[in-house]
Amino acid sequence: MRPYLYYWYSTMCDRVVGRELAGSRPYLLVTLLAASLSGLFTVGMWASLAGLVLTGAMSTAAAGTAIVASQTSGRALNSLVRYSAVMFHHGLYLHDYYAFIAAYQSTTAKRGDTQADAPHEVTLENASYTCPGQDKPTLDSVSLTLRRGMVIALVGENGAGKSTLVRLLAGLTVADHGGRVLWDKTDLATADAESVWRHVGLVPQRHGRWPLAAWENITLGQPREHGDERVWAAADRVGMGDVLRALPDRLDTLLARSVWGGHELSGGQWQRVACARALHRQPAVLILDEPTSEMDPRGEHQVFRQLRECKQDRITVVVTHRLDNVRLADWVIALDGGRIREQGTFDQLVAAEGSLVGELHALAQDR
Rank of each mutant, 00 (worst) to 15 (best):
M1W: 05
R2M: 09
P3H: 07
L5A: 13
Y6S: 12
Y9F: 08
S10D: 02
R15W: 10
G18L: 06
L21H: 13
G23M: 14
G23A: 14
R25C: 09
P26V: 06
L28P: 01
V30E: 14
L32K: 03
A34V: 05
A34Y: 03
F41K: 05
G44K: 06
W46N: 09
G51I: 09
L54M: 15
T55Q: 08
G56S: 11
G64S: 10
S70H: 03
Q71P: 03
L80M: 12
A85N: 12
M87T: 11
H89L: 12
G91H: 02
D96H: 14
Y98E: 13
F100L: 15
S106R: 14
T107C: 14
T108E: 14
D113N: 14
Y129H: 07
L139M: 08
D140Y: 15
L146Q: 04
L146A: 11
A153V: 13
N158L: 08
A160D: 04
R167M: 07
G171Q: 03
L172D: 10
L172W: 07
G179Q: 03
W183K: 06
D184W: 11
D187C: 04
T190Q: 12
V196Y: 00
R198T: 08
H199C: 04
H207K: 04
G208C: 10
W210V: 03
P211K: 03
L212A: 14
N217E: 00
T219D: 02
T219C: 04
Q222E: 15
P223W: 02
P223M: 09
R224Y: 07
E229C: 12
E229F: 06
E229N: 14
G241W: 00
D242I: 05
L244W: 01
P248V: 09
L255Y: 12
H263F: 14
G268H: 15
C275M: 00
A276F: 01
I287W: 02
E290D: 07
F304P: 07
K311H: 11
T320K: 00
R322K: 15
V332T: 06
G338R: 03
E342M: 06
L349F: 01
L349I: 00
V357Q: 01
G358D: 01
G358H: 12
L363A: 14
Q365Y: 07
